Amino acid sequence: MHYPETKGLKEILNRVEDSLEKGLPFAIYRKPNENEVIGVYQATKALHYTSDFSEKGFVFAPFYSQDKVVLIQPDEYWKAAFKKEDIPINSDISLFDNDEETHIKLVENGVRAIKKGRLQKVVLSRKIEVSISRSPIEIFKTLLNRYPNAFGYLFHHPDVGTWCGATPETLVRIKDKELRTMSLAATLPYEENKSPQWGDKEVQEQQMVSEYIGDKLAHTVQRLEIDEAESVRAGGLWHLRSEVRGTMLPDLEVGKVIRALHPTPAVCGIPTAEAQQFIRANENYNRTFYTGFLGEINLNSQGELSLFVNLRCMEIKNHTASIFVGGGITEASDPKSEWIETQNKSKTMLGIL
């Protein structure tokens, strides 16, 4: 099947409900600033993996790059128009403070490791578990309405789990060998009618990420442009972002580009191998698919990809949602401020629930 069949949104969501009941794999999603929901449904419960990103379908990749990338096959491929509704925002969010001491210690360890050795930046996170009464479909619809400029998705595979999120970060988009990605770092809370005031720590962190992405892509593109950093809003937060563009080398496979970019410095650190090693040894949980990547591959034409970093996401099991929050640690990080940053970030997903 080549192009998606046009359906009504209700049909797409009914099909999701049916797939959840039968334990069949699917992914439904909406790309940033678009008004179309796309559904990719697999007809069997089989667990497929991509071998080299040449298959058609929807991929769901873990944080650790040596682990396999799950593929949902597009046995059916649907699309429906999506119209934004006004959903009241819940500003009365109760935050969870019981991890404060543990997280501050984790950040202190990170800063010590950076001062000691080759590590320049490491992204450290924690997991929050919350009881929920809403269904995955209701949560997905709220995410789409609340975050129109994010990649909003709901994913399910009986052997992998149920995940949903609204991520502000593109891993890579490729079409006709033209590549687009972004360098995203730094966080400040959004305040009404106020521009963000970035400090040296944030500006340097973002600059570090841009330079690192430039180095990583140098062997995969003919030319590379990295824009100046600009402030972008994602829900109740500000970030610094630079757009990155390039033309892939003629005979290069897309897998090489993906491997060069994942995991990004925005979710792992610099240098990648040292940061990943530190995370594995010090974070007291397994990230699995948090800070992995996901999206469509070759659905409309061969070599066309839209992949996003799995941030601002949750894993849903029975009546519990696991939410993940983290931040970039550099030599200049203040552990208490880093804790507050994770509290601010947790409001994004807690507000949805």
Score class of each variant (00 low, 15 high):
residue 3 Y to V: 13
residue 7 K to A: 12
residue 14 N to Y: 07
residue 20 L to S: 01
residue 26 F to H: 09
residue 28 I to M: 05
residue 29 Y to V: 03
residue 33 N to E: 13
residue 38 I to R: 12
residue 44 T to V: 07
residue 53 F to Y: 14
residue 58 F to G: 00
residue 63 F to V: 00
residue 69 V to N: 00
residue 72 I to M: 06
residue 74 P to V: 07
residue 88 P to I: 08
residue 89 I to T: 13
residue 91 S to N: 11
residue 95 L to I: 14
residue 95 L to E: 13
residue 104 I to D: 04
residue 107 V to E: 05
residue 109 N to Q: 15
residue 111 V to P: 09
residue 112 R to V: 10
residue 114 I to P: 00
residue 117 G to N: 14
residue 126 R to D: 03
residue 131 S to I: 03
residue 139 I to P: 06
residue 140 F to T: 02
residue 147 Y to A: 04
residue 149 N to V: 07
residue 152 G to I: 02
residue 155 F to Y: 13
residue 159 D to C: 07
residue 171 L to V: 06
residue 173 R to M: 11
residue 178 E to W: 08
residue 181 T to V: 10
residue 184 L to T: 03
residue 184 L to A: 02
residue 192 E to Y: 12
residue 201 K to T: 09
residue 202 E to M: 10
residue 203 V to S: 04
residue 204 Q to M: 12
residue 205 E to G: 07
residue 206 Q to H: 15
residue 207 Q to N: 13
residue 221 V to N: 04
residue 225 E to M: 07
residue 226 I to W: 08
residue 232 V to A: 00
residue 236 G to R: 13
residue 242 S to I: 09
residue 243 E to M: 12
residue 258 I to Y: 06
residue 262 H to Y: 00
residue 264 T to W: 08
residue 273 A to S: 13
residue 276 Q to C: 14
residue 277 Q to M: 14
residue 283 E to K: 13
residue 284 N to R: 15
residue 286 N to V: 13
residue 299 L to V: 05
residue 306 S to Q: 15
residue 312 R to M: 04
residue 314 M to Q: 05
residue 321 A to V: 02
residue 332 A to Y: 06
residue 332 A to R: 14
residue 338 E to K: 09
residue 340 I to Y: 08
residue 345 K to N: 03
residue 352 I to R: 01
